[in-house]
Design a protein around this nucleic acid. Structure first.
Lengths: 193, 193
DNA sequence: AAATTCACTTGATCTGGATCAAGCCGGCTT
DNA sequence: AAGCCGGCTTGATCCAGATCAAGTGAATTT
């Protein structure tokens, strides 16, 4: 299962064989069944998790009990309540599995130790985070600038896999829309062509 | 003017004196007058810029000609159209100076060369980007989850300096609100206490 | 000091999307 | 196979915030 992680890392930086061996020691493998929680709001997020297989969602729940998706993660994504993981503060997000999932988890201490033991991992994460920032910037501007339909269309073209794989009510929540609104939007798009 | 940059870096990692000397060679200093552009939409963003002094805004303009703030940057912030800087694609953002500003700019080639010459800069940027991701995540969830008034109140408590320093119409745009709406919100808050 | 400009306010009206409320269907359970 | 549950649709109504339209006052320009 480390092969998925290695190949993901090696898209960005090179790892020597002995670095790969060493790297294994910093991670804990874990399996989750569908609907199982990885993290609950209020707990401290003890691991940054690489998704080897499966699908997870990160979301919070407001006063009214409504869920708001922060992000989805599948093969090749890293998942956590990043603030809680880095600072040790309580998590504001819940994370649970949408499909059966396999993870490789690293603790904050090992994350620190890993970057010190294998400095090129600083570079790997630096590049990873660069891309993540660009993505988040796009989503943020889209959420401020676009209408509901524009947001959906943009998502549908940029992440068609996501539309296939994830239930529509969760996608609505990801876009900050009521499920009914998304349903109507899809209908309108379908009618128009 | 490099002292501001050094002290900012040294909040996160240590720099040897010879590394500091070397680092200077990768940057170009630049001054901007109030209202002057650093980047215009459609151009390629040729520099990642560290703000030594002053205040800038990054924003895009929609079809209707309305501006939407992406972010503000002052002393100690890094500013660019990050996607354009990294990929060489055309910028979607405009950047201009709200106050007279002093910058230290680095080109993509020098950014790459810098991290190779001084590997601890990978670590510096990794940590910088971590924090940036947490901030963007918060703003995104806030924009999806909260009402207009909640968004403003949250901003006012988390970044009071920003409220002081930046014209109210730009803050409205940053929050994704019409200027009239923000004006009314402030009035309501004032009345209530 | 008159004139223009620009940020901000206030009021009146409009509207996109939320909310509330029913049905509909396909898949699980018993 | 009958019943139930959860995801989705559809319709009717509501409302937060946008838009349109004036007005004010402070700063900048001429």
């Amino acid at each position: 299962m480390f092969e998925v992680l290695f190949s993901h890392i090696q898209e960005k930086v090179n790892l020597a064989d002995e670095e790969k061996e060493s790297l294994k020691n910093f991670f804990i493998p874990k399996k989750l069944r569908k609907r199982q929680y990885l993290l609950q709001e209020g707990d401290v997020c003890k691991y940054l998790c690489f998704v080897v297989k499966g699908l997870l969602r990160t979301y919070n729940v407001d006063d009214k009990g409504d869920e708001h998706m922060s992000l989805f993660g599948w093969e090749g994504w890293w998942i956590s309540d990043f603030n809680s993981f880095l600072s040790g503060e309580k998590a504001v997000f819940n994370i649970d599995a949408i499909e059966d999932t396999e993870l490789l988890m690293i603790s904050p201490e090992n994350y620190e130790a890993l970057t010190l033991a294998i400095p090129v991992m600083d570079r790997y994460f630096r590049i990873l985070y660069q891309n993540s920032i660009v993505t988040k910037e796009r989503r943020l501007m889209s959420s401020i600038t676009h209408t509901a339909e524009e947001k959906y269309s943009q998502l549908a073209t940029s992440h068609p896999q996501l539309i296939q794989r994830i239930p529509q009510n969760l996608i609505a929540s990801y876009l900050g829309l009521a499920p009914e609104t998304l349903s109507r939007i899809k209908k309108n798009i379908a009618i128009r062509k």
